[in-house]
Design a protein around this nucleic acid. Sequence first.
DNA 1: TCGCGGCATTGATCTGGATCAACGACGCCG
DNA 2: CGGCGTCGTTGATCCAGATCAATGCCGCGA
Lengths: 250, 250
Amino acid sequence: MTGAAPLAASRPVSVSQDCKRDTCTNGCQECSVRLFSVCAALDPAELEELERISRTRLFEPKATLFEQGALAGSVFNITEGVVRLYKSLPDGRRQIVGFALPGDFLGLALMDRYGVTAEAVNRVRVCRFPRLTFLTYVDDKPHLMRRIHEFAGHELSLAQDQMLLLGRRSSEEKVAAFLLNQQTRYARIGTSSVTVPLPMSRQDIADHIGLTIETVSRTLTKMAREKVIVIVPDGVRLLDAERLDQLAAA
Amino acid sequence: MTGAAPLAASRPVSVSQDCKRDTCTNGCQECSVRLFSVCAALDPAELEELERISRTRLFEPKATLFEQGALAGSVFNITEGVVRLYKSLPDGRRQIVGFALPGDFLGLALMDRYGVTAEAVNRVRVCRFPRLTFLTYVDDKPHLMRRIHEFAGHELSLAQDQMLLLGRRSSEEKVAAFLLNQQTRYARIGTSSVTVPLPMSRQDIADHIGLTIETVSRTLTKMAREKVIVIVPDGVRLLDAERLDQLAAA
DNA sequence: TCGCGGCATTGATCTGGATCAACGACGCCG
DNA sequence: CGGCGTCGTTGATCCAGATCAATGCCGCGA
């Protein structure tokens, strides 16, 4: 976090603003997630150019970044906060296909319509790029394209793991695998710790791993009772990662 | 199919051969799946170059193209047949993350290890490329890279649909959605018809949509009883796609 | 032609997780 | 400070789909 003045917390919804303010004060060069994000593929001159086409944007909890099926006007790089990505059935059933963390890129597929809906879980900060401008920018930077493709490949791999989880794992295995997964992902962006943040609601977790909120709650309680985890505000502390690995049947 | 002599059916396992024979007789130019595959992005000169680094390969039913976790030595373009892609748990539970059809590209992510196992469902013919050679070939062809990325984006989108199916749909919805899905995919490669081929076993279908073989069988029987489909050898005929759409809750 | 092995179907029963129903714990606002 | 809305937990019951168990249906090889 650079020393910029924070925005007033009372803003009702997302706020567009020039990149010169806020965390981007010192530009992409100083960006705290640059090395984990697609931007790591860029040299200083390219970063400067990128900065010119980007705008920082803030989203309050529950704000929608974009909706499934809408024309994809922008692509996003998350710099702070967590975003839930989901698909819905007409009757309201929901599947959260993933939680995007800082460093994650939204709109990787570069398709003309969004395939999922994206909502802020907590306060979210992003770098936003007009999609077509970004496409032009990428066009003569094969190294960036390759990096974006690597990210897409990683995303696909995660999706396949999730299919295995959804299709073939028991409720306890699902919860265990989810917790370990979250830990791994947070470790990658530096927030490594035995305490895994869970900023999303129980309902979100349930909709991600294909269970009901009651089953998620019961399973977490059971794991806490068995001293495998401790439930703390907005997260869990993993006491016995070994045991959790077994439970996940990985 | 070009007029080349068919291979002896008695070959025990996959057979490597020069691209000049078989369906590739007239080269990539005449390839029946070119327009549906990543190759459609290439001009005649580029196709010729591609041909030089490719080899046609045949796989008998149940033969393994590559295994999850193995070093990714090759990438593949399927020209004939169906391939199942799956992940397994240590205890043998299996999740088929997708069925690859002619025109599909295996190894899209271009990563150094395969993320899934690929097995031939029926007789499969592929164009095989050494991965590193292919990478070099792609390197100075941004249009091809973009096309490959488009395919990867499509793949990701399919994966997300599958997560919704696995996590939030009932058994009947799963089967209905699967059948419609298969129909759509076959339509795309020209085999459009109300009769949907199902070359894979019931167990494969079950492992794809997260059910047991018994539930798949019962559900298909029920749909046939209700005159929504007719079960035919190696496939089903869709009688009432309208109704099937409702059942799928799409 | 028969017998065998690998699917697929069908029936009976069981159970993991869903559903239904309180209740408790905060945090917020009046 | 008290009432209310949201979220999480816990208990009781139910049921969709799993599991267990035959049986049927080829295709193939002896």
